[in-house]
């Protein structure tokens, strides 16, 4: 009991790697920088010498076009035609979350296991949702949306402002941490062979599903806000 609690505490705490002035730089931020560098590098290498002529495209360009097209269809299917200008943000978030949820496979600590990271992403989501509402309906229409369909719904609509980001943040954090704890327990039972099928589910499948669920819900709320 004590040992497990200490182990969990250690995993929940995100180590401070170094300091810039008074600000401590956490492990999750450093791993996020690595992911950013990786994405930027892939984007840079894959988009050299693009060919506009469809008869002369290289294999590399075909891969990029398929990937971008797939992501765009995925996101536009969620937010719909009316709010498709928010698509690129969602695409960036799903790329970041997808990579960070499965980065545990190569030995890094997933940044999404830090509550602060998921809280930040959830805050960005709720601000974007409200911005989408204001941008579409104007301040007056946005304020009026709080008393729709009837005035008595006002407290519930205000509560939603808090519940939406909290549930987004807790869902992602809890899933990643839960998967991690279960994997640690399985490794404690039998470290040879047994973790492989579970790792396929908990590390890869669940991580990607949760990345999708995060942008799905954000996109759904945006769609709701601009209606």
């Amino acid at each position: 009991m004590e040992q497990l609690a200490e182990e969990l505490q250690e995993q929940l705490d995100c180590a401070t790697v170094f300091y810039i002035g008074p600000y401590g730089i956490k492990e999750s931020i450093v791993v996020t920088w690595i992911i950013m560098a990786f994405i930027a590098l892939v984007c840079f290498l894959m988009t050299r010498k693009l060919e506009p002529d469809p008869t002369k495209v290289s294999k590399r360009q075909l891969i990029v076009e398929t990937a971008v097209d797939g992501l765009r269809n995925l996101v536009h299917g969620i937010v719909g035609e009316e709010a498709k200008e928010y698509g690129p943000y969602l695409m960036a978030v799903v790329l970041y979350l997808g990579i960070s949820n499965i980065i545990g496979l190569v030995g890094f600590k997933p940044p999404t296991k830090d509550l602060n990271v998921t809280a930040g992403l959830a805050l960005m989501s709720i601000i974007l949702i409200q911005y989408a509402g204001i941008h579409k309906k104007g301040v007056k229409g946005w304020l009026h949306s709080f008393i729709e369909p009837v005035g008595i719904m006002l407290p519930f609509n205000l509560l939603e402002l808090v519940i939406k980001p909290v549930s987004l943040c807790m869902r992602l954090f809890g899933n990643v941490l839960g998967a991690f704890v279960i994997m640690e327990l399985i490794k404690a039972i039998l470290p040879v062979g047994l973790p492989i099928p579970f790792s396929m589910y908990f590390d890869i499948f669940d991580g990607l599903i949760q990345a999708y669920v995060f942008i799905f819900l954000t996109g759904l709320y945006i769609k709701e806000a601009v209606e």
């Binding site: 609690a5 969990l8 549930s167 807790m170 954090f173 809890g174 941490l177 949760q210 669920v213």
Partner: peptide
């Protein structure tokens, strides 16, 4: 399933917080 699973995850997070 991912959405329904969230309730179980909340329970897990609460249990973790109780222990810690």
């Amino acid at each position: 399933s991912a959405l329904a699973e969230a309730t179980a995850i909340y329970g897990f997070v609460v249990a973790l917080m109780i222990i810690i």
